[in-house]
Amino acid sequence: MCTGINRSRESMGKPMSFDSELIKGMRFFDPHIHMVSRTTDDYQAMYDAGIIGIIEPAFWTGQPRTGIDTFKDYYSSLIGWERFRSSQFGIRHFCTMGLNSREANNEPLAEAVMELLPKFIHKEGVLGIGEIGFDDQTELEEKYYRLQLELAKEADLPVQVHTPHRDKTQGTSRSMDIAIEHGLDPKMVIIDHNTEETVKEVLERGFWAAFTIYPFTKMGNERMVEIVKEYGPERIMVNSAADWGISDPLAVPKTAALMLQHGIDKKDIEKVTFHNAIEAFSITGDLSISLFEEDPEIDQNEKFAGNSILRGGQMPKVDKESIIIK
């Protein structure tokens, strides 16, 4: 999320350059990124850094929505235009659908969204219900969190749970308690935005633990390195949650590079930056490791501007170093 915090350069320490050579040849999957807020430059940089798949959870778009049609158009864009945009850069785009916690507080609108959601959750590439959960931890947030857990259960879909910024530790425990109360298998629930304070309980209770590398307000990746050192790679995944705030769409590959520099085993890094997320979201069958082994030309959906080919590397590339624009 966006932040008004202004850090002085001095307090940020000495910048360390991103040596992309370190991660050359590695593949990454970012299971939480809001590309609707990002540019084509980001897509190109992500592809260049090895990101070949992403999940875009439905979220709050910054300006509160006042009518149901804007939700409908937003959900449609997640399975339409945004997916096409991503395919132009050789990145497979998936999404999760849900009513975010902030907007759950507008009850009449939330009711209308709940009627709309079933029309979208069975579409291709919709891998689960998300991101849902608590923000201010109000009664209405709880009501719509519970209703969406039921929706996920009925549709046999995993759930991507946003945990609150404020009163996080207690809010995270409560999110898990409610999921269990509704009979969800912890293996079907991805608890997101974890910290050092929440990870132990999340893992012990059998849930997936996702970590968001997001400057200033969520995790830093040096802390992430320590978490993987302490807890190992099982059921842990890293994401960027990059959006319209000061965030970094390369957070996953950068974190992998930092982990390599700190001596974490490459196989473990691959788990937390690629395999685990794919496994957690593979329930619908739309996402699997084998998908990334396929020749992308086979997939007729992934067409860009006219040619039935998807080879991100062959997309016309703008030379950013040159002042000449052809």
């Binding site: 409908k72 449609s76 399975i79 339409g80 997916r83 096409f84 029309k119 979208f120 579409k123 291709e124 590439g125 007729q300 959906n301």
Partner: peptide
């Protein structure tokens, strides 16, 4: 048309 994904639109 209103609720279609890309392949459904095709």
């Amino acid at each position: 048309f209103e609720f279609a994904d890309v392949k459904e639109l095709v």
